[in-house]
Design a protein around this nucleic acid. Structure first.
Length: 886
RNA sequence: GCGGACGUGGCGAAACUGGUAGACGCAAGGGACUUAAAAUCCCUCGGGCUUGCCCGUGCGGGUUCGAUCCCCGCCGUCCGCACCA
């Protein structure tokens, strides 16, 4: 039904956009045209946009919606801009939850995982993401992990893999190693059992070999958040110091050791030394403990202190004097006691230190407990060296050396250098006494897990030949499917036949490695595999992977700021070194964006249990918001806004939202309001606002379609047509710039502004016809829909059709900007007198200073504010502001 | 403890990084249409008063013609690391 208005046929406003019908329709059209399948040999410039692939938990959550909506905006925008866009999706499909499900529900991990993948795939597809599903991969697929095993073998041959014993968190109930984050207050997160420290032989990736490069190249990652780079830099923890060999007084060493090597970053404080300290598991400590039962007991006690952070926090500094005396490197007559101390770590430096209490808080706490005293050797600026003392607080700031003989008066840096220089050139037993050494906090990456649902480590243990890699032609080592989870421990280890094999070298009886790889390995190269996901004979085709990498824009959660990103950076380097790729600088991700969480109010019933948002109705009496239970009507307490979590029941199911509002509404809301790096609050009002805008766009587009019917290509000349064109091109420029910078909330605002501006010109305030107005509307409608398309792709296709445009908006090139429409002929400048705004002045855009001065001075408001005083100074900032100083 | 980020209306936030503070949205209030509701449309919306001005970006100083933005000192919130010598 139509009515006549202003001479135009007009669709009745009651006609609503039906997302439920339109969305599946357009998705089918995209599919049929294979719109988002990417060819590797496409000649256009490449753009690789990737969101962190999900763990297939079974359901997507709002965090996924936000993450994938952002990536999709970038993908669709870049496609319109003429790039050959790679935008793939896959599944981080190995991991513990599948095994937990197996234990609890008697369902096989594989079955559980693939069922979850199927349901999550269909959920993601309902979002209308422009993904190349033909490249889909799952890390639990032997076709994927085969290549991971093959690279493990290559890394092993290249010396990037190591096998050594390491201390691990052992859960005695589940009989498995736990990651640090799985130990909560000293107990296993699942079993609740007290976690033990065990020494196990483990496989390691030698990430420390790359520590220097991983640290250095952070400087080149200028499209990463500064915060993430800093976190990685701290994690790698590069420090420059000195290894110093202290001679031991022979009469004090029970087992004939003659020296002790320590590591320090403060060689300048050597004259402030009061003691040396060893880690409890330092070889010298162990050897002395063999003949000293008291020390042995002390060492045992140190081990019992848990690894839980709380325990470390509260632990008092404890030491045990071994009786050994070390000789000061600059004074043969000066000896220092050697302690074993609980706060010294064996796996950093040499596991031994010298303590300078005046300038290190830990050492100060220690000497204060054992009465060893301290000597300040750095005097803070402005302090009198004669009176400067340290009692409870160590001084670690700048200053000049004191009490340090030949170092006195030097800066800290100069003193460090002088000590290093002197000790380097001095030799004992033909070796220099000291050596400069760069140390890293970063440890090698232990990848062994006593788990079933992971990538098997392709190794065979033979009594004759030792550790033998599985020959490549025998890969993949496939997980056996006939396993049970009714007893704790690793099903691979207790499988009746799987681990029994013959040695590839000698043919004798041998055993498979039953550990599987940390799932972080799986996610460390998936982005490379996406470039040629079905390649059968190799993990990657170097030509292809080098074409696509680095990922131009990677988007994901800040929770992966360290591990996943660091491991991936290591992996690309290792792949480069083993000929699998030749990615520049070994950097996999050129651009990184970490998005904020989706948070929601929490609700609690009177009995203290959490209540789901869907069971809550919010009532408002104008000033106060109250919540009641939907069915019982009982009052519900509105709690704080928190990250959506199952335990607090403050989740909103994307399926429900898409079913009732459509995917476009969900996407639009997730992109609006908050800056993408910040948390966004999910509110019912917010979704409804987004849904209202969808309908508003629909009505607006219909009205534009009616008004542009008569477009004949004639250029608009009237004020309304010009206003329409200016609004459209302004939005075009702004949205383009903001998508490039991932400022989606501002894109949303620009589109609201454009909608408002177009509406203003549609509402008839005068004669409807004006030369070229129809043409202006035609152009503006087209631009409006194209700007919307990356964010609300289904609605945009429907609108595109209503506007009578050819083809699909998903395939249309980005509109061409007319920069002349962005500049105004005249400009209105605020006028300040002594920095306070008093008037506005409208002048020609290119008006010279004299003209502006004259115009400004002629204004009554300015004259009044100047109170008859002469202008001392005239500040004119072109296009910005005028300030008169009197 | 160390390192970092952030504090702007009732709320989420803008402000082209030194140039009109509060764009855009949400909520709220008033009005129109309607038998009524929903939807839609129009108006108001930082605070104060003398309706023109004053105050206002966590607090206190400073630099500047001019400060949300730069500097110094506090207060608060959040995040990361946590005995790394």
């Amino acid at each position: 039904m139509t009515v006549l208005l202003d001479g135009y046929a007009r669709t009745m406003r009651s006609e609503r956009y039906n997302a439920k019908e339109a969305e599946p329709k357009w998705r089918q059209v995209w599919n049929e045209h294979d719109l988002f399948a990417t060819k590797n040999d496409d000649p256009r410039p490449k753009y690789y946009v990737l969101e962190m692939f999900p763990y297939p938990s079974g359901r997507i959550h709002m965090g996924h919606v936000r993450n994938y909506a952002m990536g999709d905006v970038v993908a669709r925008y870049k496609r319109a801009r003429g790039f050959n866009v790679l935008h793939p999706m896959g599944w981080d499909a190995f991991g513990m939850p599948a095994e937990n499900a197996a234990m609890q529900n008697k369902v096989h991990p594989k079955e559980w995982t693939y069922a979850n993948i199927a349901s999550m795939r269909s959920q993601l597809q309902s979002m209308g993401l422009s993904l190349d599903w033909s490249r889909e991969i799952a890390t639990c697929d032997p076709a994927y992990y085969k290549h991971q095993q093959s690279m493990f073998v290559d890394f092993l041959k290249a010396g990037i893999v190591d096998r050594k014993t390491a201390k691990v968190n052992w859960d005695p109930v589940d009989q498995t190693v736990l990651a640090n984050e799985q130990v909560i207050d000293g107990r296993g997160w699942r079993s609740g059992a007290l976690v033990e420290q065990r020494e196990l032989t483990q496989w390691f990736f030698k990430i420390t070999d790359f520590a220097q490069d991983l640290s250095d190249k952070l400087d080149t990652l200028d499209r990463w958040p500064e915060k993430v780079r800093l976190m990685q830099r701290n994690w790698i923890g590069r420090s420059e110091g000195l290894l110093v060999r202290f001679a031991l007084a022979p009469e004090t060493t029970p087992n004939g050791d003659s020296e002790l090597e320590i590591y320090t970053t403060r060689p300048d404080t050597l004259f402030g030394a009061r003691f040396l300290a060893l880690a409890p598991d330092h070889p010298l400590a162990r050897s002395v403990a063999e003949t000293n039962p008291e020390l042995a007991a002390f060492i045992e006690e140190c081990k019992r202190v848990g690894t839980a952070q709380e325990a470390i926090d509260k632990a008092e500094k404890l030491g045990f004097d071994t009786g050994i005396r070390a000789v000061h490197p600059f004074d043969p007559s000066w000896t220092l006691p050697v302690y074993v101390a609980n706060f010294i770590l064996m796996d950093y430096g040499t596991g031994a230190i010298f303590g300078c209490p005046a300038h290190d808080q830990r050492d100060l706490d220690f000497v204060n407990k054992y009465g060893l005293g301290n000597t300040p050797v750095v005097c803070p600026p402005g302090q009198d060296p004669a009176t400067f003392t340290v009692t409870d607080t160590a001084y670690d700031g700048e200053g000049r050396m004191i009490n340090s003989r030949f170092l006195d008066g030097m800066t800290i840096e100069a003193a460090k250098d002088e000590v290093a220089r002197r000790l380097e050139s001095e030799t004992r037993h033909n070796r220099p006494v000291a050596e400069r050494k760069v140390n890293f906090r970063l440890r090698d990456w232990g990848i062994s897990r006593q788990r079933y649902w992971g990538c098997p480590i392709p190794i065979i243990h033979c009594d004759e030949c030792g550790v033998v890699p599985v020959p490549k032609e025998q890969l993949p080592v496939v997980l056996p499917e006939d396993v049970s989870f009714d007893v704790p421990g690793n099903p691979l280890d207790r499988h009746p036949t799987w681990k029994h094999v013959s040695c590839p070298q000698c043919g004798g009886k041998a055993r498979r490695e039953t550990d599987t790889m940390d799932t972080f390995v799986d996610s460390s190269w998936y982005f490379a595999r996406f470039t040629d996901p079905h390649l059968a004979d190799a993990p990657t085709d170097p030509g292809v992977v080098d074409h696509w990498l680095p990922v131009d824009q990677y988007i994901g959660g800040i929770e992966h700021a360290i591990l996943h990103l660091l491991y991936s950076r290591f992996f690309t380097r290792a792949m480069n070194q083993t000929g699998h790729s030749n990615v520049r600088d070994g950097e996999p991700f050129a651009g990184l964006f970490t998005q904020g969480m989706v948070v929601h109010e929490t609700y609690k019933a009177s009995d203290g249990t959490w209540v789901q948002p869907s069971e809550v109705r919010i009532e408002s009496d104008g000033s106060q918001r109250r919540a009641v239970h939907v069915t019982t009507g009982a009052p519900v307490t509105i709690g704080s806004v928190e990250k959506m979590s199952k335990s607090k029941k403050n989740t909103v199911d994307p399926d429900d939202i898409i079913a009732s509002y459509g995917a476009d509404t969900a996407r639009w809301f997730m992109l609006s309001d908050s800056p993408p790096e910040r948390d966004v609050i999910w509110t019912e009002e917010g979704v409804q606002g987004a849904a209202r805008f969808v309908q508003r766009v629909w009505r607006l587009v219909s009205e534009i379609a009616e008004r542009s019917g008569a477009a004949d290509g004639a250029a608009p000349t009237g004020p309304r047509g010009t206003a329409v064109r200016k609004a459209a091109h302004k939005a075009l420029a702004a949205v383009g710039e903001d998508v490039e910078r991932l400022r989606f909330n501002r894109c949303v605002a620009h589109l609201y502004e454009l909608a408002n501006a177009l509406q203003e010109q549609i509402n008839p305030t005068g004669p409807a016809s004006e030369p070229g107005l129809a043409e202006a509307f035609r152009e503006a409608g087209r631009i409006f829909v194209q700007l919307l398309a990356p964010m609300m792709p289904h609605l945009a296709e429907e609108a595109w059709q209503v506007l009578g445009q050819d083809g699909l908006v998903a395939q249309a090139s980005w509109p061409k900007l007319d920069p002349s429409l962005l500049v105004e002929d005249t400009v209105t400048l605020p006028v300040q007198v002594n920095g306070k705004k008093r008037a506005d002045v409208t002048v020609a855009r290119d008006a010279d200073q004299a003209t502006i001065e004259a115009t400004v001075l002629s204004l009554d408001a300015v004259q009044k504010a100047m109170e008859g005083k002469p202008a001392r100074k005239f500040i004119v900032v072109p296009q910005r502001i005028v300030n008169v100083v009197v």
